[in-house]
Write a protein that binds this DNA or RNA. Sequence first.
DNA 1: TCTGGGGTCCTAGGACCC
DNA 2: TCTGGGGTCCTAGGACCC
Length: 424
Amino acid sequence: MKAIVDCNSFYAACERVFKPALHGKPVVVLSNNDGCIVSRTDEAKQLGISMAGPYFQHREEILRHKIAVFSSNYHLYGDMSRRVMDTLRLLSPEMEVYSVDECFLDLTGIDAAKLRDYALFIKHTTELWTGIPVSVGIAPTKVLSKLANRLAKKDKKGTGGVVVLQTREQLMRAMQQVQVEDIWGVGNAGSQKLHMFNIHTAWDLSLMSEEWARHHLGGVTGVRLVRELKGHPCIEMKDPLVSKKMIATTRMFGKAVYELPELRQAVATYIGRAAEKLRRQQGAAGMITVFVVNHQPKYHVNDYTPSSRSAYRILPTPTYLTNTLIAQAMPLVEALYQQGKRYIKAGVILSHIVPCDHIQFNLFEEPESPQLQKLMHTIDNINFGIQTDILKFAAAGTAKNWKMRQEMRSNRFTTRWDELCIVR
DNA sequence: TCTGGGGTCCTAGGACCC
DNA sequence: TCTGGGGTCCTAGGACCC
């Protein structure tokens, strides 16, 4: 059996841990740049605040209902996520961290009759140790456990936040309650198609043949999905040690950018951040992609149609050195830049990643000098230990007019000495 | 005024090879 | 009139996830 443990309204829950007065009150958290609403507590959902809605469109109701609003505080959420995962690691032999607020557990070997008690134990322990409420779904496959979890979240009172699906009866009744668009792995395109075939619930879909799924539901992906719904596991637990194949750093600007020097600075800054992630997984990138997005505002309010251009370069030798990556990327920025455009976003993507002890050096290139390697290491240590970005490359600039807005960020309670909670 | 960021996997189709 | 067959590798783009 597989379990999925999912934190309820994770970002908002993190804020509540350090502001107990907000318990039982509506809270929302915004995306970077205070752009969209990305986390809402149940109380905020009940007031009609929709997911991923632009903040400025909801500002009035948020004020009217006195909803607490926070800018995103990734230092805090990252650290709270680590605490939740560390707790769960102690409670299960095999786990896969699926996202910042979710993880799968393999419960093979646990007595079927005790599964519900075990799920409750997981839930209570996590909440007691971290202050973050979670829901638990347990079923024979990953897809079915996600489905169980959805039912647990939807009716927290009725289910106690825990749903276990074991018998054929239980599975059937659960699947009949879930619409196809709410199945893990079925998106917009898939669900529209399914409805056209008169398949509306997870149960309907589970009755289809694998051949049918192969033809109409995206080949092997569809087959896997139908098999999982039928109760045959075929989406494996993933190895936690596998490194990322691609590393991206992309941001909307806080203020539109028109000039090339500013655009170069932004891209150089993002490369610094991406290279840091790359070194953390001890990788070297063989390819760098840069993209820029521009948007000319039109006459109607709802016309949001940005357009983007990108360019890439295959590096002569894979590297993790920030300065080399910046040097490779700057000509790309210059090629992409068009005078007079109003840039609202840019990003870099590092790919063709190899382990850095496996770099295949080019016959005509000098291998990277040990001093440069040491320099990177030192920069990372200082930036991580003392203060983010205290050391950076000159190309990244210092003015940063384009930097994102975060006007309502809470303190980084768990990762900064000077921002700790004060208890009187 | 104002619309996030970071990933994975799969497939089709082109390039290339013998 | 008529122009092979089979295979691999790579990339772009779509779909999906949180």
